[in-house]
Simulated scan of single mutants.
Amino acid sequence: MSLRLSTVILPHRRWNEGGRAAWVRAEELGFHTAFTYDHLSWRTFRDGPWFGAVPTLSAAAAVTRRMRLGTLVTSPNFRHPVPLAKDLISLDDISGGRITLGIGSGGTGFDATALGQEPWTPHERADRFGEFVPLLDRLLTEDSVSYGGDFYSAHEARNIPGCVQRPRLPFAVAATGPRGLRLAARHGQAWVTTGDPKLFETGTPAESLRAIREQIEKLGKACADIDRDPDAMEKILLTGFTPDRQRPLESLDAFVDFAGRHAALGITEIAVHWPVPDSDFAADETVFERIATEGLSQLR
């Protein structure tokens, strides 16, 4: 697979005050996919504007034509498979079949307690994720679904006419642990990593590369266990969370070096954050646009 370049546009600007313009410009720059985070609030943006992923993607679908759109990532923290499936089918229809669902088990951030619940342990998150993904798969591929599980249920949930993309829109499953990787192998059309979070503060770029290589090897083993070809899966790296988190957008040369090293591991898609001034995602917009238009051609 050839390397693709995508972006993540945070939903922190009013649509008519820069929100719309970013999505339109992303398509003009040629990004493969423009993702957005599916959170109720997020990190240092918690006390500022933050809009919902589903309506944002609906609006983005109306002002773009070719670029794929998606979440990176949706989680069970505040989502239920039944209403989520209805929203996704609607998004896929509005966009003409351009939606990818990035999906993960969730974390311990603000989303984890926004509904008044105690945050789940890693084991509880894995348990819920293990039920969430297969049920969502069914809801997006079957006209009527009834199900009773430990965490989720559905009673004659209707999802007609289904997705524009058949048999359903693609899942990009974020996972690094064994249970999550098995889910990715069985249900994902793509796999997502941010690297090894244990290396974020004190690790080195070389250690991060080794960790991602090991993750890809474990994904390959999970695929082999069900006789699936791991090379058929897209492998997405969401940047900004590795030890060299600022480097990819420092210059065109820095991006080419970063992208080349990760492509050599087997990464097939790199997602960079749309610049946000005065934040962890601040970047020179001129450099960013040059990376978008020239970065991949420098690798060939």
Rank of each mutant, 00 (worst) to 15 (best):
A175Q: 09
R182H: 10
T176Q: 14
T176A: 14
R179S: 13
V192W: 05
L181I: 08
V173D: 08
P167D: 00
R186N: 01
H155F: 14
L199V: 05
R166G: 00
L183A: 12
H187Q: 04
W191R: 03
P197W: 11
Q165A: 13
V173Y: 06
K198I: 03
Q165M: 10
W191M: 04
P167I: 00
V192K: 08
Q189R: 13
D196L: 09
L169I: 15
K198N: 12
K198V: 08
L181R: 06
A185N: 03
K198W: 03
F200A: 14
T194W: 09
P167R: 01
R182Q: 13
G177Y: 09
T176I: 15
A172Q: 13
R186V: 01
G195E: 02
A185M: 04
G188R: 00
P197A: 11
T194F: 14
A172I: 12
H187F: 15
K198S: 15
A190L: 08
G188P: 03
T193E: 12
P178S: 13
A185P: 00
R186K: 11
R158Q: 13
H155V: 15
R179I: 12
A184C: 10
R182M: 06
G188K: 00
R158H: 12
T194Y: 12
A184R: 01
W191G: 01
C163Y: 03
I160F: 12
T176H: 07
G188F: 00
F171R: 04
G188L: 02
G162F: 01
A185F: 01
R179D: 10
V173S: 10
W191C: 04
D196T: 08
L169Y: 13
D196Q: 09
V192T: 12
P197G: 08
G162D: 02
T193W: 09
Q189F: 03
R186W: 00
A174V: 08
A174N: 10
L169H: 13
R182K: 14
R186M: 02
N159C: 05
H187D: 02
T193D: 11
T176G: 15
G195P: 00
H187L: 07
R158M: 13
F200D: 07
E156W: 04
L169A: 12
I160S: 12
R168T: 07
G162M: 03
V164K: 11
R179G: 06
R186C: 00
N159D: 00
A174G: 15
R166S: 09
A157W: 02
A184S: 12
C163I: 05
G195S: 07
G195M: 02
R166K: 13
F171E: 06
G177A: 14
A184F: 02
L199T: 05
A190E: 08
A175I: 10
L169N: 09
R158F: 11
H155A: 15
G195Y: 00
V164G: 03
L181F: 04
G195L: 01
A157T: 05
Q189C: 03
L199S: 08
F171S: 10
P178Q: 07
D196H: 09
A190I: 04
F171L: 08
V173K: 10
E156R: 11
G177N: 15
H155W: 14
V192Y: 05
P197D: 11
R158W: 10
L183T: 15
V192D: 06
Q189E: 15
H187C: 02
A174M: 06
D196G: 09
W191A: 03
G195Q: 04
A157R: 03
T194H: 08
